[in-house]
């Protein structure tokens, strides 16, 4: 079924392209060089795809667009063949909040908005406290997606739960539904740099934020498309976050790479609130044989939380 549609799409698109080519008309050979360039005489050395060093005139250099822009339906579909997963090693976290900083910066979040929260957890009075970074869990049974009336928050085939801020009506039902309190609302007009604000909204970058809509951690699929890791993963000096693909059964924090299934088995990984049946894509490794004492993270508590400690 899936195949059929894509073949039909392909055919339709092909036909349209041909039609367009004929329409734009004579003289416009699509295979002719785009434009004539005046040579500058200045040469630059480049590495070709085959690994050879080549030299070309500087005039031929053109800025390559970062990524071809994706259509909304591509963004809703996801990256083919992937099933993203994250592992968070609680034994390594000391509440440095570098992840939060990098994330907030990369997504131009306004003060008071945190997609990543590092929580001070203690299961029972006598048990040891520990630091627990929480992201969006990208559940396989996402309660937020179930309740959204307009399909503004949706589940993709690569496992991600993303938000279309151009569609969200701001009812906040998803915030009530999310047991992990991961969602953040734009109560006021977000303050953004002009360059960011001018971009069209993308579900994959979750930018620019829009007033009256929700937002949350998106697992940085824009980075994944470029073959890079999410900002939290790369910014954590302690390698707490490991990101990867369930289908490849591997996760990495940049420095170390693990077989996901083995890591979870060896270190007794678990997910949060398993009993709710949300089936999160984030696994936690228990805070045993810790690298840092809990107390070392206390100085980084946010001012609001300091009082309650």
């Amino acid at each position: 079924m899936e195949n059929n549609t894509s073949r039909r799409d392909f055919l339709v698109n092909g036909l349209l392209a041909t039609a367009a080519a004929t329409a734009t008309g004579c003289g416009n050979n699509p295979f002719a060089p785009e434009e004539t360039v005046a040579l500058s005489g200045e040469k630059v050395k480049l590495l070709s795809v085959d690994g050879e060093i080549i030299e070309i005139d500087k005039a031929f250099l053109k800025p390559v667009p970062h990524m071809p822009p994706l259509t909304n339906s591509e963004e809703r579909k996801g990256i083919e063949g992937k099933k993203f997963v994250m592992v968070i090693d609680l034994a390594r976290c000391k509440n440095l909040k570098k992840c939060q900083e990098a994330c907030n910066h990369a997504h131009s979040l306004n003060p008071g908005q945190n997609w990543i929260k590092v929580l001070s957890m203690q299961e029972a009075e006598e048990s040891a406290p520990f630091w627990q970074p929480t992201t969006c869990m990208h559940c396989d049974e996402p309660p937020c997606v179930k309740v959204c009336p307009v399909d503004a928050t949706f589940k993709r085939q690569d496992g991600l739960v993303l938000i279309d801020s151009d569609r969200c009506i701001g009812c906040r039902f998803c915030m009530a539904a999310c047991p992990y309190s991961t969602r953040v609302f734009n109560w006021e007009e977000p303050i953004l740099e002009e360059a960011v604000a001018a971009q069209p909204y993308s579900c994959e970058t979750s930018m620019p934020q829009k007033i009256g809509t929700v937002s949350k951690c998106d697992f940085c699929p824009d980075m994944a498309r470029m073959g890079e890791l999410p900002h939290c993963v790369t910014s954590c000096p302690n390698g707490v976050f490991m990101f990867g693909d369930m289908n490849e059964d591997s996760v990495t924090n940049g420095a170390e790479t693990f077989r996901f299934s083995e890591l979870i088995k060896d270190k007794a990984g678990y997910r949060l609130m398993e009993d709710l049946g949300t089936k999160p894509s984030v696994y936690y490794l228990p805070p045993v044989s810790r690298n840092f004492p809990y107390e070392s993270g206390l100085e980084n508590l946010s001012p609001a939380d300091k009082q309650s400690h």
Partner: peptide, 14 residues
């Protein structure tokens, strides 16, 4: 109800 989420209310404005 909303003031008693599952995870502690932290890292958010007071």
């Amino acid at each position: 109800t909303l003031l008693h989420p599952f995870l502690p209310m932290q890292d958010a404005p007071a």
